[in-house]
């Protein structure tokens, strides 16, 4: 049995065949996509900068800002850091860290504040 067959057998066992040397750099993202993402990031920042000075938005400012910064976060992580195109396991690792951090520190903050410091 040659290498390729061994690899295929292996791939079958593992449930994801990547015997043909597929790898993470395979997906080509056109430059224009990056430029568009950069533009959107700049625009969102400008919007954020603008809305904090609008008194009428005060009541909804917190959710609004959170959504906007989450959008930026997702864009950078998804496109610039390639999570959208890479193997899921990378996104899985990062999501694990992110979710644990969010859960832990939201809980911690809530308990801490609840005590009244």
């Amino acid at each position: 049995m040659n290498e390729r067959e061994a690899a295929r057998a292996h791939g079958a066992v593992r449930g994801h065949a990547e015997a043909h040397g597929a790898h993470e750099g395979a997906h080509v993202v056109p430059t224009s996509t990056y430029l568009k993402v950069g533009l959107v990031l700049a625009v969102i920042t400008a919007v954020e900068f603008g809305i904090v000075y609008v008194p009428a938005l005060k009541p909804v400012l917190i959710p609004l800002l959170l959504i906007l910064s989450a959008a930026k976060f997702v864009l950078v992580a998804g496109f610039f850091m390639h999570l959208k195109f890479d193997r899921w396991v990378l996104a899985g690792f990062f999501a694990a860290g992110l979710i644990l951090a969010l859960g832990t520190y939201l809980g911690l903050g809530a308990i801490f504040a609840h005590r009244g410091g």
Binding site: A22, G97, A101, T104
Partner: peptide, 22 residues
């Protein structure tokens, strides 16, 4: 996994950094 060792390691490190900055 089809991913370079170093890249996998870097992502793990960054995941850990979430807990750090958090």
């Amino acid at each position: 996994t089809g991913i370079d060792n170093r890249k996998l390691g870097m992502w793990l490190f960054l995941a850990s950094e979430c807990m750090f900055f958090g």
